[in-house]
Amino acid sequence: MLSYQHIFHAGNLADVHKHALLAWMLDYLTRKDKPVSYIETHGGRALYDLDAEAARKTGEAARGIAQARDWFAADDPYMRSLTETVAAHGPDAYPGSPLIAVQRLRDSDTLTVAELHPQEHNALELALPTVTCRRMDGFDMAHGLVPPTPRRGLMLIDPSFEVKEDYDTIPGHIRKYVRAWNVGIIALWYPVLRSDAHTSMLKTLQKDHQVALRHEVRFPPARPGHGMIGSGLFVIRPPFGLAERAANLKTHFDRLK
């Protein structure tokens, strides 16, 4: 299935949760003068126009980054990416995770991003001309890359979950990534759903990776009847300090009504 396009949801509260913690982890990794590998399995188009008709149609950004921007100090890694994106692309521009990675990493680091959707992949390549952007299944790409060189680094797994079988197959993929890449940080984003479709996957992941960090935030549904009521990150080998950073971020979500 290739129907999903993130522009309808760009800048929503799930993006705020995911991108704020991703930017923090990348900032953590670059504190040492050692090169980093970054792998992303489902890249999207990397750069979004929140004034586009598709973005305005759902109103998710208006209830997301538009109200959350003041949660972050000017020197926060996520806010630095937001500021850099607006400066380069205009006031309605929003960075997807591949662009955040480009902004927060260095020339000595290695980035590889997959996107299967043809239009999204074309946009991804236009947004990130210096990055290796592969048009292929992201899970397959990651199996072919791990362990990467350099070995120090992070993988972000961020599927749309429009393929419902992903809930069943993702734990198996991650099990293999963890075995092959024994020092890599592996972070999975997942939606928190009214239907609880995500819960069986999480039970398996927690059984397999008992010291991983599972962090979830809840927020009001984007519109009446919308099935996503929160956002989750499951991080294997979480960097020191991530749990505290995530807990601080959650305090802002807890105030939403």
Rank of each mutant, 00 (worst) to 15 (best):
residue 139 F to S: 00
residue 137 D to C: 02
residue 32 K to L: 04
residue 254 D to V: 02
residue 196 D to N: 12
residue 164 K to L: 01
residue 41 T to S: 10
residue 200 S to D: 15
residue 111 L to S: 11
residue 232 G to I: 03
residue 19 H to S: 12
residue 134 R to E: 04
residue 173 H to R: 00
residue 107 D to W: 10
residue 125 E to C: 12
residue 136 M to L: 05
residue 150 P to T: 03
residue 101 A to V: 03
residue 129 P to Q: 05
residue 157 I to H: 01
residue 124 L to R: 07
residue 118 P to G: 09
residue 117 H to D: 03
residue 52 A to T: 09
residue 162 E to G: 02
residue 154 L to A: 06
residue 145 L to K: 03
residue 185 I to K: 06
residue 147 P to G: 01
residue 232 G to E: 14
residue 235 V to M: 14
residue 164 K to I: 01
residue 94 Y to P: 10
residue 14 A to Q: 12
residue 207 K to T: 13
residue 134 R to Q: 12
residue 27 D to F: 14
residue 198 H to L: 02
residue 120 E to I: 03
residue 23 A to Y: 14
residue 86 V to K: 14
residue 123 A to D: 05
residue 120 E to R: 08
residue 112 T to I: 09
residue 188 L to A: 02
residue 92 D to K: 07
residue 142 A to H: 04
residue 200 S to A: 14
residue 157 I to W: 10
residue 222 A to W: 06
residue 205 L to P: 15
residue 180 A to N: 00
residue 245 R to H: 12
residue 87 A to Q: 14
residue 132 T to A: 09
residue 93 A to L: 08
residue 174 I to W: 00
residue 213 L to Y: 07
residue 178 V to C: 00
residue 99 L to T: 07
residue 175 R to V: 01
residue 214 R to M: 09
residue 131 V to I: 06
residue 13 L to W: 09
residue 15 D to I: 04
residue 21 L to F: 11
residue 131 V to F: 04
residue 66 A to S: 15
residue 226 H to L: 04
residue 88 A to E: 09
residue 228 M to I: 15
residue 162 E to K: 04
residue 223 R to F: 14
residue 224 P to D: 13
residue 144 G to S: 07
residue 130 T to E: 10
residue 177 Y to E: 01
residue 199 T to N: 06
residue 78 Y to I: 08
residue 82 L to Q: 13
residue 157 I to N: 01
residue 82 L to G: 06
residue 153 G to T: 01
residue 168 D to H: 02
residue 142 A to Q: 00
residue 99 L to D: 05
residue 248 N to A: 15
residue 67 Q to G: 11
residue 43 G to L: 02
residue 157 I to L: 06
residue 167 Y to F: 00
residue 173 H to A: 02
residue 104 R to V: 02
residue 124 L to G: 13
residue 90 G to K: 08
residue 242 L to R: 11
residue 19 H to L: 11
residue 159 P to G: 02
residue 188 L to E: 03
residue 229 I to Q: 12
residue 200 S to M: 10
residue 236 I to A: 10
residue 81 S to R: 09
residue 83 T to P: 05
residue 23 A to M: 04
residue 155 M to G: 03
residue 40 E to C: 10
residue 245 R to Y: 11
residue 96 G to L: 02
residue 6 H to Q: 12
residue 240 F to I: 11
residue 11 G to A: 04
residue 134 R to P: 06
residue 176 K to M: 00
residue 62 A to W: 14
residue 248 N to K: 14
residue 51 D to V: 08
residue 212 A to T: 13
residue 204 T to Q: 13
residue 27 D to H: 10
residue 245 R to F: 10
residue 103 Q to H: 07
residue 214 R to D: 15
residue 18 K to S: 06
residue 243 A to G: 13
residue 43 G to M: 03
